[in-house]
Nucleic acid binder design. Structure first.
Length: 822
DNA sequence: AGCACGCCGACT
DNA sequence: GTCGGCGTGCTC
């Protein structure tokens, strides 16, 4: 039997199945095996066969966990595809796919040897061993981690080994199922009392002197009228319903339980309660939307993928909902993907109203137990529609018929940090292909790649360029900050024009959103006397100043320290902040417009679970006049009362050294502008820039996506960027700068040797050349589209990396391969 | 990824 | 000597 271990190992491992487990093992189920000397872990069965690997005596499977598969065969197919396409191991994909609670892990524990007695011990014991023994006299068992903490060292294994050798302790492995079903305590009437109404009547007579207990019983009978339907008693009532009711006495409930009149029992319930009170509401489509829906459907008759290019406020969501309903009628499952910041309570509630408890929600803010329930709900077919973030593509669908990828252009569909470095949009297309499902990609500002596919006829293209209802497009005005500066019209980062407009909204009791794409107070500080700038010790970046916490922070490694009082280089106390982030904008606005109620929404103010919702509801209830924020304020939030949107510094968004910079900037401007003036009111957008001549503004103001696309596609063709080539980014990391540079050079040379020379670019030292103490170098591969999937190229890359790492001077080189980088 | 093993330099 | 620090290699 072959298993996939949730580790970055390049191959599968084969275990022998004990005879008695033969019938219990199947593909997609979890089994427990021992891997290595002691590690015990759960893994997924990938194949059941009888071919032992070359020359090895196999170990046996220890235990079979599941009675039915947790991973379905179509999932294994897509996981393998991901591993190959994104150049990672199956183990890494599985690891990312399974909710942590489905991954059983072992924690080694120690306890005293049953035969050990303190007084008969003849072994000399070290200080550390004494400490462990003492701890074991207080606790029956200790985990390895606990021992490590106890001794304040990570080298505790030698002491454990020593104690083991002296037969003082024993080790055992504990495997914990981390998923725990939610259990409620219920109470119900003693069944005899239900079966024999006379006994119940008699009971009431007996309780005449105990009015509190009668109250409890009456309440129970009112909530669960068992005399009308005796079956109701099986379900009983949630005990909390009784105990938390202030009109009922707790001691009365307890005496009834004691007497056996009521009995308590436990019930496993779902974390997503079935709420049949939700009436499924359907919104009728407008004629315009219906037309778009029909176009999508007719494209689906001949094409698998359709791009819906619909401007903000054109009512795409209604079209999606209608298409989902349509797909469900055909009996299949539907996956609706949204970027994290767009998956808000607003949209979930809206979908709930239509799909009720057939809808599963997969969000990264969910607890692990909740994720397992969604996983199981999809597996069992309870959830036919799932709305979720990028990781929802891992769910165990067995019969998808439609996938919707909303805000298709969003770069957050791409995962970078832990491998697999996948793009959920691309995986969705492959997933649809495997399931024979259709895919609808939607965006107001499609990615250049997608629009290219739609224009050249590979995909269908449906356009919605009218705003829904009476909503009108906002009016956009550019403010030239350079000119205003000269006219002394700038109050710090605010132009007189912007301030004036904000004040006007305040008077009219309308709301304002200000967008600044950088968090913190200032990106760096600077000594006025010696020009010293505090830098991160581990990364090649300056530290950002965060006023609220009075700290300097590194946005790359998380390092933070107190804001110094004086310059660390010359001792001068004249430290000034340079540049600005959301925090400074908030601060200054509070000073410039003291009457305004300003709130900030960025990564720093939304760290805890409820903060985000709190800020939103404050704004919704008009308790906040001005909302200052990063990208978070740009997505999916519909506020009717917002009539002004200000972009504080447009240039910082445009000026990125990246071939997607303009595309991203355009999309961001359009997205933010979309927040202004919904539902009838004409909104206004003010863009502050030092470069009014930048042609992108013209396109934003005229809402001319086509022009942007034409411009971008020309450039991409000219310079060889996607969609005309596939990009693969190879990052070479090393703790030593010289080894990093040399390793990168060698690797690039090897790649040029193996691949057609012009495809390999670099190595190049990136702008931020060190992160977390690792020096970086980048190599880019440009793979012509004619190379199909690039299978062969990837093989060559893998071999080249392997070969370089064989050389002992590059042993410690870390190589990260990113296929289709964002 | 962990984790063992083994080599090395430093501390008392 | 013992302790703690890495580098290296392996896991059916």
């Amino acid at each position: 039997m072959d298993v996939i271990l949730p580790l970055p190992l390049p191959k599968l491992y084969t275990y022998r199945v004990p005879y008695e487990m033969n019938d219990l093992v199947f593909v997609g189920g979890r089994v427990i095996v021992q891997f290595g000397a002691k590690k015990v872990l759960s893994c997924i069965v990938a194949a059941v066969h009888e071919k032992p690997p070359v020359g090895y005596q196999a170990k046996y499977v220890m235990e079979v966990i599941d009675e039915t598969p947790v991973v379905t065969p179509p999932q294994l197919r897509i996981f393998s595809w991901m591993a190959e396409y994104y150049m990672c191991t199956l183990g890494e994909v599985i690891n990312a796919a399974l909710p942590a609670a489905l991954k059983l892990s072992s924690e080694s524990r120690i306890q005293l040897h049953p035969a050990y007695r303190d007084e008969t011990n003849e072994w000399p014991l070290s200080q550390q061993e004494e400490t462990i023994l003492y701890a074991l006299s207080q606790n029956p068992t200790l985990t390895f981690t606990e021992v490590g903490n106890l001794l304040q060292t990570s080298h505790f294994h030698r002491y454990i080994k020593s104690l083991l050798l002296k037969e003082i302790i024993i080790i055992f492995e504990e495997i914990a199922e981390k998923y725990s079903p939610k259990v409620v305590k219920n109470v119900r009437l003693n069944q005899e009392l239900v079966n024999e109404p006379e006994t119940l009547e008699k009971l009431f007579d007996e309780l005449a002197s105990k009015p509190k207990q009668v109250d409890v019983l009456m309440y129970y009978l009112q909530k669960a009228p068992v005399h009308q339907d005796p079956n109701l008693n099986f379900k009983g009532l949630d005990k909390n319903l009784l105990t938390s009711n202030p009109r009922l006495s707790l001691s009365a409930i307890n005496s009834l339980l004691k007497k056996g009149v009521l009995e308590q029992f436990e019930q496993i319930i779902s974390r997503f309660p079935i709420d049949d009170s939700v009436k499924q509401i359907s919104y009728p489509l407008s004629e315009y939307q219906e037309n778009a829906r029909n176009q999508v459907l007719s494209f689906f008759a001949e094409k698998d993928t359709v791009l819906l290019h619909g401007i903000t406020g054109s009512g795409k969501t209604e079209v999606y909902i209608d298409l989902i309903k349509n797909a469900l009628e055909g009996g299949g499952q539907v996956l609706y993907l949204l970027p994290e910041i767009a998956l808000t309570a607003q949209i979930v509630t809206r979908l709930m109203k239509v799909f009720g408890d057939r809808l599963g929600v997969y969000h990264s803010k969910f607890s692990d137990n909740e994720r397992v329930e969604v996983w199981n709900g999809v597996l069992s077919g309870r959830f036919q529609v799932v709305v979720g973030v990028r990781s929802a593509i891992f769910l165990p669908f067995h019969d998808l018929s439609l996938i919707i990828v909303d805000e298709e252009h969003e770069s957050s569909y791409k995962q970078y940090d832990p491998s697999p470095r996948y793009n959920a949009r691309e995986v969705a297309l492959m997933l649809a292909n495997f399931h024979g499902a259709k895919t609808l990609l939607g965006s107001a500002t499609p990615s250049v790649e997608s629009f290219y596919n739609a224009k050249n006829g590979r995909w269908g293209l449906v356009t919605m360029n009218k705003r829904f209802g009476v909503a009108v497009l906002p009016e956009t005005e550019l403010v030239d900050t350079k000119a205003e500066q000269q006219r002394k019209n700038m109050h710090s980062h605010f132009s007189a024009k912007l301030l004036e407009e904000i004040q006007e909204r305040l008077k009219r009791n309308e709301q304002v959103i200000l967008f600044q794409n950088r968090r913190g107070y200032a990106p760096y500080i600077n000594c006025s006397d010696c020009a010293w700038i505090p830098k991160c010790k581990s990364c090649a970046v300056s530290l950002s100043y965060h006023k609220f916490s009075n700290e300097l922070r590194c946005h790359y490694c998380g390092f933070h320290e107190r804001m110094p009082f004086s310059c660390m280089a010359c001792g001068s106390t004249d430290l000034k902040t340079v540049g600005f982030g959301t925090e400074k904008i908030e601060d200054e606005l509070k000073i410039l417009l003291p009457e305004a109620n300003v709130q900030r929404m960025d990564l720093d103010t939304t760290k805890n679970k409820n903060a985000f919702q709190q800020i939103i509801s404050d704004f919704e209830a008009n308790r906040t006049n001005v909302l200052v924020g990063t990208q978070m304020v740009t997505k999916g939030l519909d506020f009717e009362n917002v009539s002004l949107v200000g972009i504080i510094n447009a240039d910082s968004i445009i000026n990125y050294p990246d071939f997607r910079a303009h595309e991203r900037a355009y999309s961001m401007f359009v997205q933010v502008s979309g927040r202004a003036g919904r539902k009838g009111k004409k909104g206004k957008v003010i863009i502050q820039t030092g470069n009014v001549a930048q042609p992108i503004f013209q396109k934003v103001m005229e809402n001319d996506y086509q022009a942007l696309y034409e411009q971008e596609i020309t450039e991409r063709q000219l310079h060889g960027f996607p969609p005309f080539v596939r990009l693969i980014k190879i990052t070479v990391k090393h703790l030593d700068e010289k080894s990093c540079d040399e390793g990168a050079l060698h690797l690039a040379a090897e790649l040029k040797n193996r691949l057609a020379g012009p495809m390999v670019l670099g190595p190049e030292t990136p702008y931020i050349f060190k992160i977390r103490n690792y020096f970086l170098n980048e190599i880019h591969i440009k793979l012509p589209r004619s190379h199909a999937s690039g299978r062969e190229t990837k093989k060559q890359i893998a071999e080249a990396v392997f070969q370089i790492k064989q050389q002992k001077e590059f042993k410690n080189l870390r190589v990260v391969v990113d296929v289709d980088p964002a």
